[in-house]
């Protein structure tokens, strides 16, 4: 019973991931993109949950879905793209097929390499992926990357503010 539930859940989430990706890839209007993005990220979060990564699931939902998608939406609204501002893409289908042909070997290789890693998930304790165990690990082994990441986030914030400012000196020069 649980297995059937899990399998169908996985199928649903996988479908969500691919649907979101295809929406981004094929759609033309920014609103559709944002929608696809939202679906894809949320589905990935669901997959995390299925993988017993509860903390990662929360982080994904909070940061990616709640943060990045919202910021993207805000950006789309701020820019207020009109139809005319969108780039014309006359040969989009041709490009898509060509690129797909080019990428196929890479994807195949990637998949083949990945599938050599293991055949079945081992059983894990209930605390796996939980806040407690992850937090312990984070503050034992990952303190330095964690701190660096905080600096990176700060820098990115400052950078984004500076870049996003309306009036910039090089604008006047050019």
């Amino acid at each position: 019973m649980i297995e059937i539930l899990e399998t169908s859940l996985f199928a649903l989430l996988a479908l969500g991931v691919l649907t979101g990706g295809l929406m981004i890839l094929l759609a033309r209007r920014p609103a559709t993109h944002a929608m696809g993005f939202f679906i894809a990220l949320l589905s990935v979060a669901g997959l995390f949950a299925l993988l017993h990564q509860s903390f990662l699931f929360f982080a994904q939902v909070l940061v990616s879905v709640g943060g990045v998608v919202i910021v993207t939406l805000i950006m789309i609204l701020t820019v207020n793209l009109r139809e005319a501002d969108l780039p014309p893409e006359p040969h989009q289908t041709r490009w898509l097929i060509g690129a797909a042909v080019i990428i196929a070997p890479l994807s195949l290789l990637l998949y083949q390499t990945l599938t050599t890693l293991g055949d079945a998930f081992p059983p894990v304790s209930d605390t796996f992926g939980g806040t407690r165990s992850l937090g312990t690990l984070l503050f034992h082994d990952g303190v330095l990357p964690f701190e660096i990441l905080s600096v990176l986030l700060l820098t990115a914030m400052v950078g984004a503010i500076i870049i996003g400012k309306k009036e910039q000196s090089y604008d006047r020069e050019s």
Binding site: F55, M75, L134, P145, L149, A160
Partner: peptide, 22 residues
């Protein structure tokens, strides 16, 4: 999991910058 967690942070930073650039 830990690395994936860091990556979520990096993704956030990257998103902020990329959107500002756009």
């Amino acid at each position: 999991t830990m690395i994936a967690l860091f990556m979520i942070g990096v993704i956030a930073a990257e998103a902020a910058l990329f959107l500002a650039v756009i």
